[in-house]
Amino acid sequence: MRKRSPRGSGEILADEILQAATELLIEQGSEARVSIRAVAGRVGVTPPAIYLHFADKEALIEAVCGRFFEQFDAVMVAAAEGIDDLVERGVAQGMAYVQFAIDNPVVFQTAFSHPSDRPTQTDQVLMASAFQHLGETVREAMAAGLLPAGDVTSTVLGLWSAAHGVADLMTARPGLPWGDDLSIAENVVRAVISGLSQETVKSEPQRPPVR
């Protein structure tokens, strides 16, 4: 076992616990195979030490997923970098979400595996960071007349739903004939954005014909 931590090092231990739990989750491929005892053993503490930082295993796993998705903020920034076309930027951001899910299928599936009537830590992380970037794209597109004016958050949630839906299927059912690239996912994201763009066209006042 590890030596007793010095006073004030609780935050460091909590970080070590999260890191160990993340490694075990990815290695085992399922949260059902991750135990508090296994996490404690990897960190070098007794199981009760884990409960000083996390109420139970569910709270620990939720914290693992929330912290893991903090990485997605930088992914979204990189995806939009240098893309001036707002539609293409939106597609790139949606596809970044799909790619992130495919690259991290275990954590992705775990993060959204439990129904919840409250925002989880993953939800809070996404809405407070990565999806602020998508919101900026949507806001600019609305101002430019490329998307119908309205509530930015609702539109972001709609786009997120489309990207999440295809990402969920591709990670949960990787054996389906998705092909060797992400063209199916991109077609879905583009179709949703195109549909919103068409709503903008329909809402524009029709000019009388020139006589």
Rank of each mutant, 00 (worst) to 15 (best):
E88N: 11
T200G: 12
R190T: 02
A130Q: 05
A101I: 03
A78L: 11
Q132D: 12
A191W: 02
A21T: 03
P148M: 00
E11T: 11
C65W: 08
I83F: 11
T155P: 07
E204R: 15
S9Y: 11
Y51R: 13
I83R: 14
V210G: 03
L147E: 11
R173T: 14
K202A: 09
T200Y: 08
T200V: 14
P209S: 13
E11V: 13
R89P: 11
V201G: 05
L25I: 06
A79M: 12
D103R: 14
I61P: 10
V210F: 09
M76A: 10
G8L: 08
I102W: 06
F68S: 12
R211F: 14
G158S: 10
P105I: 15
A78F: 07
R37N: 05
E70P: 10
G10W: 09
P208K: 06
Y51I: 09
P177F: 00
D103P: 08
S203N: 13
A78T: 10
V152F: 07
Q93V: 13
P48Y: 01
V201T: 15
D151G: 12
A130E: 05
G8W: 08
V192M: 04
G145I: 06
A63V: 04
F112C: 01
Y51A: 05
D56A: 03
S183A: 15
V210T: 13
T110I: 03
Y51H: 15
V34N: 06
C65H: 04
E62Y: 04
L86K: 02
V107E: 12
P174H: 11
V43D: 00
F100E: 10
A130P: 02
V45E: 06
A55N: 09
A32V: 04
T120M: 08
R173N: 12
Q121F: 14
I184F: 05
V201M: 07
V125A: 14
Y51T: 12
N104Q: 11
A144V: 02
P177R: 01
V138T: 04
A21N: 04
